[in-house]
């Protein structure tokens, strides 16, 4: 079965809210260790794909598979188990306002009734990963936009999920902070072998995600390298949505070479 190689698979998924068709027979698959970058204008159903993957909403028809498991008709209780495998980074972070950074990151483990002695090292490790150890006692409203997203990433990483969904994690951020977020995504892709769907419409993100990779040298330092002319990253693929349909699927080189007028307009306008 082909789906053994797929962390996430959509088969002919359709969804409409009332008269508005959001997704129309959308099919794609994310292989293990692959990052699938989903692009498209506003309201083209990018975020809807993530919400469907998490089972927060159900499709009208078609099937969704996570890890080869058909989750289309799963109940909320069954979904809870599937969601342990998935981490989601929400658009604005979606941190719980009433909880401190520490409690936000610890949320999933607290829900699983883990003892406090186990929670603390995990929380601190995750905060160190996103470089926010100092903010541990702050409340979400004391954080900047970029810090909120990073805490959101730390929270999504608790439990070491093998699938991460990013919902426009760089929207509205300055280029430097946006790059930091992308670097985190690279680290997860290249060092932790996380499969992911990365929703974005920023070309700068695409640039970084499609042409850079990270390796660890002999001393444990992280080095970000550019693929250059000789290498070609095969673990990052793109899909472009328009009016609920996938109008492009492939690598960044193929996308840049595409003659589709919508893609051309998209790539030119963003620049």
């Amino acid at each position: 079965m082909a789906n053994k190689f797929h962390a996430i698979e959509f088969r002919d998924v359709s969804l409409a809210f009332g008269d508005r068709v959001v997704l129309d027979r959308v099919s794609f698959a994310v292989r293990y260790g692959e990052s699938k970058i989903v692009m498209g204008g506003s309201g083209t159903g990018k975020s809807t794909i993530l919400r469907l993957t998490l089972g927060l909403i159900k499709p009208d028809s078609g099937a969704i598979l996570i890890d080869g498991e058909d989750i289309t008709f799963y109940t909320e209780e069954q979904m809870m188990k599937v969601r342990h495998k998935i981490g989601m980074v929400f658009q604005e972070g979606a941190l719980f306002d009433s909880l401190s950074v520490y409690d936000n990151v610890a949320y999933r483990l607290r829900e699983q009734k883990a003892p406090e002695s186990e929670i603390e090292p995990v929380v601190m490790r995750m905060l160190r990963f996103v470089d926010l150890e100092d903010a541990v006692d702050k409340m979400p409203n004391e954080l900047s936009g970029g810090m909120r997203r990073r805490v959101g990433i730390a929270r999504a990483l608790v439990g070491s999920p093998k699938i991460i969904l990013y919902d426009e994690p760089t929207a509205g951020l300055d280029p430097i902070t946006a790059r930091t977020i992308c670097e985190l995504a690279l680290k997860l892709r290249d060092l932790e072998e996380v499969s992911s769907i990365f929703v974005t419409h920023r070309l700068q993100d695409i640039e970084v995600l499609a042409s850079e990779y990270v390796v660890r040298d002999d001393f444990g330092n992280l080095i970000f390298e550019h693929e250059g002319d000789k290498l070609c990253l095969i673990n990052t693929k793109f899909i472009m949505l328009k009016d609920g349909n996938v109008i492009f699927s492939g690598s960044d080189e193929e996308m840049r070479g595409s003659g589709n007028p919508y893609i051309r307009k998209f790539l030119d306008n963003e620049r």
């Binding site: 998490l54 909320e76 969601r83 342990h84 658009q91 979606a94 719980f96 929270r155």
Partner: peptide, 17 residues
């Protein structure tokens, strides 16, 4: 406001009802 800031979705995503 929890709903519109996606905190309810986040709650479900993190495994609580």
């Amino acid at each position: 406001s929890m709903l519109v800031s996606e905190q309810i979705d986040a709650m479900r995503a993190l495994g609580s009802d």
